[in-house]
Design a protein around this nucleic acid. Structure first.
Lengths: 134, 134
DNA sequence: ACCTTTAAGACCAGTTTAGTCTTTTTATAA
DNA sequence: TTATAAAAAGACTAAACTGGTCTTAAAGGT
């Protein structure tokens, strides 16, 4: 239960690699893929998601590539994970006859709410800068 | 990310239903399935998992059916969820070149460890008795 | 014997995962 | 202005997982 997929793993590896590069350095997807041992085309898709969210900036053509869009200290592990895996949401509704919203007496719902807020809190407390530091 | 599957939802519904029955009452799978609105054959499989772990006792033939194998107060939500979904394990290894075990400098690993222990702790703190109470 | 009930296992359609491949767009350089 | 370099976009795919169904077997009761 609750496993991060490879996409999530690759996403973290990729952005941490970027954070470890010298300031201002632009990295090619081929370079990042090789260094992180991630299939290049798959990583490219992941980085497109990042770019759309502004976590990284991309540029095309000669001299193009990827670079962090914000300081690594302002990017949290949660943002990275949610960028590719979607929101952290352990709770769909349980118990009783209908959906949780319909009949409000669901006893399990608050438990999943608690789980969610703990996980979110932990992942929000970790920055890419921390992960990138030697 | 981190979603409970239907199997997990159904598992909780089913065992909570059992916990809500009068002490000593044996319930048929057909009855439980109808009451919880879960497909009967699917629920039967889930209950087989429970039976193997001793969470419930089953008996065949006329007058047979299912009954809790232990007091509801001694069955935790974690046990129920893990019985059908497997262990709560958010961490496969990330970062670096090899697996987390090989090169021990993985920075993300301890984060997932923390997540895991929090989630386990929360689910261990909730009993089926609590969930079954009106 | 016959009926009732769970157990076990084969089977299956649909979705998700983990990618690949091709084409297009954008930017630079000769 | 043409060639080249790079990311963007989208179609495609094999394998695994989800969410079941169906059939047969086993065990217990009458």
């Amino acid at each position: 239960m609750m496993e991060l997929t490879r996409k999530g793993e690759y996403a973290i590896r990729g952005i941490v690699y970027l954070a470890q590069q010298p300031a201002g350095k632009v990295s090619l997807i081929s370079e990042i893929a090789q260094a992180t041992e991630v299939p290049q085309t798959f990583l490219a898709k992941i980085f497109q998601s990042f770019a759309k969210l502004g976590l990284i900036n991309s540029s095309r053509g000669t001299g193009g590539g990827f670079i962090l869009g914000r300081p690594a200290s302002s990017i949290t592990l949660r943002q990275v994970v949610e960028a590719v895996e979607g929101p952290i949401m352990p709770n769909r509704c349980l118990l009783g006859t209908g959906s949780c919203e319909r009949d409000g007496h669901c006893r399990v719902h608050p438990v999943w709410k608690t789980v969610q807020s703990h996980v979110v809190g932990i992942l929000d407390g970790v920055t890419i800068e921390e992960l990138a530091s030697k």
